[in-house]
Design a protein around this nucleic acid. Sequence first.
DNA 1: CATGTTCAGATCCTATAGGGCAGCCTCCGG
DNA 2: CCGGAGGCTGCCCTATAGGATCTGAACATG
Lengths: 235, 235
Amino acid sequence: MQRPSQSTSPGSRKGKPVSRQVLADHVYEELLESLMDGRLEPGATVSIDGTARDLDVSPTPVREALARLEHTGMVRRVALKGYRVAPVFTREDFAELMEARLAIEPVNARLACARLTPERLAQLEQAVTDLKTAPRGPSFAEFRDYLEADERFHRLIAEQTGNQFMVAAYAALGGQVQRFRLFGGVGITDAENAIAEHQAVLDAMATGDPETAAAAMADHVSKVRGRAIADAPEA
Amino acid sequence: MQRPSQSTSPGSRKGKPVSRQVLADHVYEELLESLMDGRLEPGATVSIDGTARDLDVSPTPVREALARLEHTGMVRRVALKGYRVAPVFTREDFAELMEARLAIEPVNARLACARLTPERLAQLEQAVTDLKTAPRGPSFAEFRDYLEADERFHRLIAEQTGNQFMVAAYAALGGQVQRFRLFGGVGITDAENAIAEHQAVLDAMATGDPETAAAAMADHVSKVRGRAIADAPEA
DNA sequence: CATGTTCAGATCCTATAGGGCAGCCTCCGG
DNA sequence: CCGGAGGCTGCCCTATAGGATCTGAACATG
């Protein structure tokens, strides 16, 4: 067994026991990254045994990781048939996703605004800065950082609400957004507009006016929806 | 192995292949019911091996079922330590939960109102009727049906939005509500008021006015919050 | 009495084995 | 040429075994 067998070195006595991981956690993260990066295309089957061979583990941790992933909507499971990557978004799916974001994200912005600390504000500013400086080339590897910064901005706002349930509700949506941008045919042609809208949200939150922040977020999500529909006229 | 070995009888040729289940599904439902019913109290450890012995299965399906349950927030996992039932709600947790419901459920009511069919309306009416007729005795077994009808009413509205993401967002909250009512010290002292508010939501939806329905739902959730805080003054 | 140590049981975690089912390919008879 | 039977392979699902780790209690020691 190639178990890491952590802390066999007798020297580091006070080695941080921070959230020790097990194989299933690594498999989960590996699969999640593959899904986010697009290495696993929509509709592709995710074989338990095959994944286990690829990652050089037994099927048991893979099964556990996939059971968790199923709840995120990234993969779907059919009993006795196996797992497969969730199919591509239709335009209706995208409309539903944006409808849900419109219901949740402005509320997040309002709540986050009320309990904003300088430290958290700095994190948001960093995200917007990363958004501006990230390369936006045509290949995926080139705008990977852009998407990551985008998602981070929204996730930070959700976390800053301090409301665990709003975080959970957003998490049920957040992963889907990035996946859609990979496979929905919508690239980042809207980068300039999106950056300006993110900046507007950030400014409103820095000002400290919750209603303005909520309005800015609603405006952003609404415009993202409009641009995506315009960019991807096909099904 | 006591595998069901479905359709070994040669007679039934076209036996319906209705969503074949596996052991992990049964274990999942069994654990979920135990959690909802309160047989598993908050903070109690859920041993993988022990549960496997109780249900007379091997630990593998139990592990898969618990991995799914973890994502619902009903149980928490610590690596190399095991699973335990999520702790009791604090008053802050409850306030957060109601805040999240206030953000989501009125939107659900508005969306559901727009695409209401007679059949779906009948389902909602049935839920309200069940709410009125369900016994409301002091013991859990007596108001189990009441809680079930309550949860069903809200879930139906979420499903009637036709928006899979709103359903997912609500599902992240729905289970928590029932659990809180079991352990939060709040019984169903508010039954009469709650029934009237549900009826108001139903009437508004039947009328077909989305904004009135949303307002009625917001009013209901808001008042539930107020009553719960009044009923449970302790931590 | 307080404190550190040891040990045993329970538990988690992973690997491996085997049963059963579905799809695919080949082969053969019409 | 074509359709079906049969074998083969891959996969899912569950059980079982064994190593690693944690917990709690008994016990020794200052």
